[in-house]
C-alpha cells in the first residue's frame, strides 16, 4: 500500500498572481488552518514535491519556468490551480502578455476557483488532490510492472 497520500509535500509557485491567492495559501499553514495535520509540508524544492500548487495565470515569461518545475517533479504528482487566475486567466485574461490559466502549459488535475480562493477551499482542493494520489500511484505501479 502506497503512503504518498499520507505525506503530500507541496510546492507553491506564484505565476502572475496579484498575491491575493498566495496570502490565502500561506494562511493554510498557519495555526488556524494547519495543513500539516494532513502531513502536508510546504517545500521549496520541486524534486521533493508531490503537489504543484500554482496561483496566478501564465505569462510569456513564466511559461518556461512552470514547465521546468513540472518536469523536475518525480512521478506521481498532482497539479492544483488555485484561484480564478490560475484556472482561466481570470481578471488578467485579456492582458497582452497573459496566455491564460495554468492548463495552457501543463496538465492540471484540480481547479480551485475563487478570487481570492478561500483557505477552506484550498484545503479542500489539496484533500481532493491527495485522494487522486492513490489512483496515480496505482497507475504508476501498473505501468512499471508492464515495462
Amino acid at each position: 500500500m502506497s503512503t504518498i497520500h499520507k505525506s503530500p509535500w507541496l510546492l507553491h509557485y506564484d505565476g502572475s498572481s496579484c498575491n491575493g491567492c498566495d496570502i490565502e495559501v500561506l494562511a493554510c499553514t498557519t495555526p488556524v488552518y494547519d495543513v500539516e495535520r494532513f502531513g502536508v509540508i510546504n517545500t521549496g524544492n520541486p524534486m521533493h514535491a508531490d503537489i504543484f500548487l500554482i496561483t496566478g495565470g501564465i505569462n510569456s515569461q513564466n511559461e518556461a519556468v512552470v514547465k521546468q518545475i513540472y518536469e523536475q517533479m518525480p512521478q506521481p504528482k498532482v497539479v492544483i490551480a488555485v484561484g480564478t487566475c490560475a484556472c482561466t486567466g481570470g481578471i488578467f485574461k485579456e492582458c497582452y502578455n497573459i496566455k491564460g490559466g495554468a492548463d495552457t502549459v501543463i496538465p492540471v488535475d484540480i481547479y480551485v476557483p475563487g478570487c481570492a480562493a478561500r483557505p477552506e477551499s484550498i484545503i479542500d482542493g489539496v484533500v481532493k488532490g491527495i485522494a487522486l494520489f492513490k489512483e496515480k500511484a496505482a497507475a504508476l505501479k501498473a505501468s512499471e510492472n508492464a515495462n
Partner: peptide
C-alpha cells in the same frame, strides 16, 4: 499552537520517498 501531524508521519514520509520515481 497547531495540531500537527500524526506521530507516525516520519515513517509515512520515508516510505513515500522510496516509492517516488527516481530522477
Amino acid at each position: 499552537g497547531r495540531r500537527g501531524p500524526s506521530v507516525l508521519q516520519p515513517f509515512f514520509d520515508l516510505k513515500k520517498l522510496f516509492e517516488k520515481e527516481f530522477l
